[in-house]
Simulated assay, not measured.
Amino acid sequence: MEIIKLSEPYQSSQLPKEPSALALGFFDGVHLGHQKVIKTAKKIARERGLKLAVMTFDRQPKLMYQPHPKPALYLTLLARKLELFEQLGADIAYVVTFDEHLASMGPQEFVDKYMVGLSAQVVVAGQDYTYGKKELANMETLPSFAKGRFDIVAVDHLVLAASTSKVGSTAIRAYLNQGQVDQANELLGYPFQTKGLVVHGFARGRTIGFPTINLEIDPSQHLPAPGVYATQVELLGQTYLGMASVGYNETFGDNFDLTVEIYLLDFAKDVYGQEATVAWYHWLRPMVKFASVAELIDQLKADEAAVRQYFAQVKK
Rank of each mutant, 00 (worst) to 15 (best):
M1R: 06
E2M: 13
S13R: 13
K17V: 13
G25S: 11
G25K: 08
F26Q: 06
F27I: 06
K51T: 08
L52I: 02
L52E: 02
A53P: 02
M64R: 15
H68A: 10
K70D: 10
P71I: 06
T76P: 08
R80G: 03
L82D: 03
L82R: 02
E83C: 06
L84F: 09
E86L: 01
G89L: 04
G89R: 00
A93Q: 00
V95N: 03
F98R: 09
H101Q: 14
L102K: 08
S104L: 06
M105K: 13
G106S: 05
V111F: 13
D112L: 07
K113A: 04
M115G: 03
A125E: 00
A125H: 00
G126Q: 11
Y129C: 07
K134V: 05
K134Y: 08
A137M: 06
F145Y: 15
A146F: 07
G148L: 09
V153T: 13
D156I: 02
A161C: 04
S163K: 05
G168C: 15
A174G: 05
Y175E: 14
L176K: 07
L187R: 07
P191V: 14
Q193Y: 07
L197I: 14
R204F: 12
I208M: 08
F210G: 05
T212K: 12
I213A: 05
L215C: 01
A230C: 12
G237D: 05
Y248L: 02
Y248F: 14
E250Q: 11
T251L: 12
N255Q: 12
D266E: 13
F267Q: 02
A268D: 15
A276W: 14
V278P: 06
W283I: 00
M287K: 09
M287F: 01
A291S: 10
V293P: 07
E295L: 13
E295H: 11
L300C: 02
K301L: 02
D303C: 01
D303G: 00
Q309C: 06
Q309V: 03
A312Y: 09
K315E: 15
K315A: 15
K315T: 10
